[in-house]
Simulated assay, not measured.
Amino acid sequence: MPRPRLDLGTWGKITRTEIAESKWRARARFRDFTGRTKQREAYGDSGAKAERNLLKTLRSEIESAGDSITGKTTVTALSKVWLADTDLTERCTAQTIERYTDSLEQHVLPALGEYMLMEVTVSRVDRFLRGQAVLTPGLAKTARSVLNGMFKLAVRHDAIRSNPVRDVRLPSRPKKPVEALTVDEVGALREGLQRWQDGVGYRGPRRGSELLDVVDVMLGTGLRISEVLALRWDDVDLGEQPTATVSGTLVYLKKKGLRRQAHTKTSSGFRILTLPPSVVNVLLRRSVEAIQTETNAVFPSGKGTWKWPNNYRRSLRDALKTMEDHGGISPHVFRKSVATLIDAEATLEAAAAVLGHSGTAVTSKHYVKKATAAPDMSAILDQFGGIRNEKDG
């Protein structure tokens, strides 16, 4: 009876033979991606070493075969095919792909890279991701997204029957309450920032008005810090009906540095905002003081380039340290404060639209600070009070 035919990119039983003193040969039948089955062999000073060398050769041949993925493809080889897949490159931004690449190189491949796809089980992935979640929950979430995308590709190529990442759930984290500022708290904050800018009791170069100006724009628009610092004068119309068009954001790429991305974080983020008088006053003053720069940024750096968001955050932290009860505020709190105020004074739908969300779910869950409104059951519950009142009478 003839031996069963090997699948493409797979090999049969490996045999070891000592052909001389301290010289071993490992052999196996291998079916390459042309469909031909040939003997492959490798040598070593022990049987185990010869077999390891043969496995290394066979896996290298699979990896060099391009996007041909089988159950014996390694996770490392799969990652290379996945990163080059057009479904990923066309769907994700450059910074997202960079973040996925970092996750692969720093976390996923050191732990799982040498496993063949057929060896990657649900329990193995679960142990890896849960171990990551204990240390860095955010990085664990990215690693899960990476592995899920890779193994979806492997399933499409019939290399495995099911995606082992699909059934893995990361440990849930307690939901933090939404932090938002009231109108009175914003007023106190602005007074503190103004004092910091005026440099009361401070020795050194004169501080400009930029810190408070950016805060005022964020509070008047709900923009992210990276969107505010990406604003160009071309995006601003200070005419009869003042508006600002949100059309880009600042991103950092290792090979390109800080640059303006000519689209927003999501498609719904591309929006035109009507500016309140407080923001108009800030922009009118800055337009008079503005100097011509290559970026045409409303808030350029001292060199006329794009201003790093992290540099702004650092300046804000330094200012907040001088004020009581404001040490934990970040630029994102201003965005949540905007959503909370609009929800209270108008509608949740309006808050989502101003923030650039595609729906109200994210806005309600992560951006609006409010207690859940219970149904009005006062008439029913008053029966208890009625019983007491009758007895009192």
Results as ranks from 00 to 15, higher is better:
248 G>F: 06
249 T>D: 08
251 V>R: 10
252 Y>P: 00
256 K>T: 10
257 G>A: 12
260 R>K: 14
261 Q>V: 01
262 A>L: 07
265 K>H: 07
266 T>W: 10
267 S>V: 13
267 S>K: 15
269 G>T: 05
269 G>F: 03
270 F>W: 01
272 I>G: 02
275 L>T: 02
276 P>G: 05
276 P>Q: 05
281 N>V: 05
281 N>Y: 03
282 V>E: 05
282 V>K: 01
284 L>A: 00
284 L>W: 03
284 L>T: 05
285 R>G: 15
287 S>P: 03
288 V>M: 10
288 V>Q: 13
291 I>W: 02
292 Q>S: 11
293 T>A: 06
294 E>S: 01
295 T>C: 08
296 N>L: 05
298 V>E: 07
300 P>S: 11
300 P>D: 08
302 G>F: 03
306 W>G: 00
307 K>Q: 12
307 K>V: 00
308 W>F: 04
311 N>V: 04
312 Y>F: 15
314 R>S: 06
315 S>V: 09
316 L>H: 06
318 D>T: 13
321 K>F: 09
323 M>G: 11
323 M>K: 12
327 G>T: 09
330 S>N: 04
332 H>P: 07
333 V>W: 05
335 R>Q: 12
337 S>W: 10
338 V>M: 12
340 T>G: 01
340 T>W: 00
341 L>D: 09
345 E>I: 09
346 A>P: 02
347 T>Y: 08
351 A>V: 00
352 A>D: 11
353 A>M: 10
354 V>C: 06
354 V>L: 14
356 G>R: 07
357 H>Y: 00
358 S>G: 04
358 S>K: 08
360 T>G: 07
360 T>E: 11
360 T>Y: 05
361 A>S: 15
365 K>T: 15
369 K>H: 14
370 K>A: 10
374 A>K: 15
376 D>H: 01
376 D>S: 04
381 L>M: 13
382 D>R: 14
383 Q>L: 15
